[in-house]
């Protein structure tokens, strides 16, 4: 099982590396989105209040993640999907996609964080907690978005459907992540955020497990 997953992940990475335009496209998407926000709020460095910074940051990450993950079931042809269907178990496929998308979302989030820090200033006081929160947030985003993109791909895969199906499902994760990152920005003690971190982890687990159980039914159809 683990061998199967690692092979599938390396396949995803190779595929992404061969079609660099998709990866580069989404990276450019993050940078441009940050720049548009920067110009729209008209903030000079450090002038933006930290709740606004936080909200803008997470909204950009949310939209980039939706765009990045939306393609996870479309970039391959029907024929090739049939081939995977024959050689791999659906559990391995969903887990490999979730893990791969977690990595992708995390790269996006870190890139966004970097660009944000450079042009909008970096108000984060507790870097460790902020990064940990990014990892947890990326896991949650990727677990729910991978499943939703699988569903949307069965339904003609239009972008509207992807958005309306994923936004309500992702809101609990987003809200928790925003709250924890606010705590990290204010440099509060880890004890304050501990229960929120555990809740976020629990929501991630619920979403991932539901996806894991339901994906075989989706894959078969």
């Amino acid at each position: 099982m683990w061998k199967e997953i690692s092979v599938l992940i390396s396949k995803e990475v190779t595929l992404e590396w061969r079609q660099k335009f998709a990866l580069n496209g989404i990276l450019l998407y993050v940078v441009s989105a940050v720049f548009i926000t920067y110009l729209s709020v008209g903030a000079k460095q450090g002038n933006i209040s930290s709740p606004t910074w936080n909200a803008l940051y997470w909204i950009i990450i949310l939209f980039s993640a939706v765009n990045a993950v939306a393609k996870s079931f479309v970039q391959e042809h029907q024929g090739r999907q049939l081939y995977y269907y024959m050689i791999a178990s659906p559990e391995a496929i969903i887990l490999s996609k979730i893990i791969y998308n977690t990595g992708l979302t995390l790269i996006l989030a870190l890139l966004g964080y970097g660009v944000f820090s450079v042009i909008l200033g970096n108000p984060v006081q507790d870097q460790g907690l902020f990064i940990l929160n990014l990892v947890l947030g990326a896991m949650g985003f990727s677990a729910s978005l991978t499943m939703v993109s699988g569903i949307a791909s069965k339904a003609g895969n239009n972008a509207t459907l992807m958005a309306i199906l994923s936004f309500p499902v992702i809101i609990p994760i987003l809200l928790m992540a925003i709250r924890i990152s606010k705590n990290a920005m204010d440099g509060l003690d880890w004890n304050v955020s501990m229960d929120k971190l555990i809740t976020l982890l629990a929501i991630n687990a619920i979403v991932a497990v539901t996806g894991y159980i339901l994906f075989p039914y989706l894959w078969r159809s």
């Binding site: 069965k154 499902v169 809200l175 929501i203 539901t210 039914y217 159809s221």
Partner: peptide, 27 residues
């Protein structure tokens, strides 16, 4: 197909709905 994918999303949405309604507002 409508029934199958509808059922999958229904279960998935319910799993997200429960923390949304019962856990988050209490925090």
């Amino acid at each position: 197909q409508r029934a199958r994918i509808g059922a999958i999303y229904n279960i998935f949405a319910f799993a997200a709905f429960i923390p949304l309604i019962f856990v988050l507002p209490r925090l």
